[in-house]
Computed example of a mutant assay.
Amino acid sequence: MSTENSIIETAKQTIEMESKAILNLSSLVTEDFAAAVNLIYNSKGRVIITGIGKSAIIGNKIVATLNSTGTPAIFMHAADAIHGDLGLILNDDVVICLSKSGNTPEIKVIIPLIKRANNKMIAITGNTNSFLAQHADYVLNAYVEKEACPNNLAPTTSTTAQLVIGDALAVCLLNLRGFSSTDFAKYHPGGALGKKLYLRVEDISSTNEKPAVNGDASIKEVIVEITAKMLGVTAVVDNNEIIGIITDGDLRRMLTKVDDFSNLTAKDIMGANPKRIQANAMAIEALEIMEANDISQLLVEHEGKYAGVVHLHDLIKEGII
């Protein structure tokens, strides 16, 4: 077998092994899982997640997921806990401890200290007979038959299992809280993801020029308006109500059909009943309309009146695409 084929085969085996292990986790979900979710949901405090080594890295990811979906969480490294960081844990906090073996020295040291403070503790471990499992209030079984590592040593499948259980916790809590896309936007105001969730059409169109001509405008007036406003389009309006649209493309098509346009008006070449969008609609909706109709500009309305233009380039600039 060539080196390239060997690499591909190893990659496939790793993915298949981990996917089978993850699928098996569903059979390990017990009443403890539901009780753990309800404990966190009804808690007045935060979730404190602790672990060491690769479990600590997974713990940080679970903390990030919980925070972004409405459950306040903090990571506390198990090694740092015994050197002062135990002070992070407040009376109403729920502690989640991650450990594949459940018997690492650092975990054994901090568990009695956590229990002494009467904080409830949830274990995510692959060993339900471990010191951690025996002292936890609830045990979430993260057992995997073996690591994807050929030596069965490097944490691979086991850390993936921990991560999936963390995701399952977060999603269950999200559902209980009725956490919506609007709520999600509050926690993700930055970047393309946030903009897709909160940016509205009027946020973009209000910064653009507002090209407009009346229906009796001459073709020269139309060309001057489109050129001046630099959006490649103008609305045709009557009492500031949209009656049509003229684009650069409409002008080019007109020139292929007539030699003399001195007597033509905007009404003669406009596209009637153009696609439009409400000013308070989400910007992502504007993109969907543009893509569905293969257009680059969209007229904007507010309370039945012409309110401006949103251009595909605006959406690209804002990172919506």
Results as ranks from 00 to 15, higher is better:
E303L: 15
I295L: 14
I295H: 10
V309A: 06
I242M: 06
P72M: 07
I52G: 01
G59V: 12
G244Y: 05
N67Q: 05
E209M: 07
Y143R: 07
T182E: 15
K220G: 00
V213M: 01
Q13H: 06
A168Q: 02
S6D: 11
P155E: 12
M230W: 01
I165T: 00
I316M: 14
V47G: 03
A148H: 12
V236I: 13
I40E: 02
K229Q: 09
I107C: 10
G271T: 15
E318C: 09
V258N: 02
L98I: 15
M282E: 05
L66F: 02
S206K: 13
N208K: 11
T128I: 15
K210W: 03
V63L: 04
D248N: 14
N293V: 03
L299H: 02
I89V: 15
G59S: 11
K61L: 01
I204S: 11
V109Y: 09
I58F: 06
V95R: 10
E16W: 03
E241L: 03
A170P: 04
I284H: 01
A148R: 11
K317G: 10
I289G: 03
K61H: 10
I58K: 03
A34E: 07
A212T: 10
A81L: 04
R177H: 14
M254N: 10
V222L: 01
H313S: 08
V233F: 07
I219G: 04
N141P: 09
I96Y: 00
I242C: 03
S296R: 14
P189Y: 03
D167M: 03
L66D: 02
L312I: 15
N42Y: 10
K120H: 14
G304T: 12
T207M: 14
M76W: 02
S206L: 10
I245R: 05
I48T: 01
I320V: 07
A21C: 00
D248P: 08
K317H: 12
G304I: 11
C97Q: 01
Y143S: 08
I49E: 00
K275I: 06
V222P: 00
T65D: 06
S19G: 02
S19T: 12
K317S: 11
S181A: 13
L163N: 04
V139H: 06
E147C: 13
A192P: 04
K100H: 12
A266S: 13
S296W: 04
A192I: 07
K44R: 12
Q13C: 01
S262Y: 11
D183G: 02
T3P: 00
T50A: 13
M121V: 15
K196H: 12
